[in-house]
């Protein structure tokens, strides 16, 4: 019970944080355009803030992407293999992913320590550079956690691969939403609803 609750809360937080980053980036750039074009003024910290949010978005999101299967990959070949071989290669792939993360955690840690020691500030936002940069370490540690979870699932037989995002599958959701719509019917069902559109 508590377990499920925690999972739900974590999911909510992750999703909320990612969405918030994407929306804030978009709005900040939008507001910059409005400020420049409409009010002849600029926001001097906007560029740095937008780029930082982008870095957080990607590095924080990478692990969430593993959890929900948002990454893409080539699985046509492993899927042709017998189940046991498939599982073996998936586990091998996960181990390699963990090595990748390990190398980056190590490299990022050294990089971050150096930056903290030197103590340089961001260009426009008056905070030390190493603080926003810490997402490098955080992101790769989270990625390790997700890969370990996935590896465990493969070992106990709950999963057999990475479950890559499938743009085709996602597009089918659009199709589902539209399924019951008729075409060629001159008095379309929703033409009533459209009455007054753009008026």
């Amino acid at each position: 019970m508590v377990d499920v609750m925690i999972k739900k809360v974590v999911s909510h937080l992750e999703e909320g944080f990612l969405s918030l980053l994407l929306v804030s980036m978009t709005l900040l750039v939008f507001v910059e355009v409005v400020a420049r074009f409409g009010f002849n003024s600029g926001i001097h910290w906007a560029q740095e803030a937008t780029l930082l949010m982008a870095a957080w978005f990607v590095l924080f999101g990478a692990s969430y992407g593993v959890k929900v299967g948002a990454h893409i990959g080539v699985d046509v070949f492993v899927k042709m293999l017998p189940a046991n071989t498939h599982r073996f290669f998936t586990l091998l792939a996960i181990v390699l992913c963990l090595i990748y993360c390990g190398l980056f955690v190590y490299g990022s840690w050294i990089y971050l320590s150096k930056m903290k020691m030197i103590g340089i500030e961001m260009e426009d936002i008056p905070i030390p550079k190493w603080i926003p940069m810490s997402i490098l370490v955080i992101g790769f540690v989270l990625l390790i956690v997700r890969f370990l979870q996935l590896g465990w699932k493969v070992v106990i037989g709950q999963a057999d691969g990475f479950h890559f995002a499938d743009e085709a599958e996602e597009s089918m959701e659009i199709a589902k939403d539209l399924q019951d719509t008729a075409l060629g019917d001159p008095e379309n069902k929703d033409s009533n609803k459209d009455k007054g559109d753009k008026s």
Binding site: E15, L18, V23, G65, A70
Partner: peptide, 20 residues
């Protein structure tokens, strides 16, 4: 609305992580 934003986030972070 949240679902639209979250779906867009998933696709974007996947693309940006590949690009990086």
């Amino acid at each position: 609305v949240r679902k639209v934003v979250l779906d867009a986030s998933k696709v974007s972070l996947m693309l940006l992580f590949i690009i990086a």
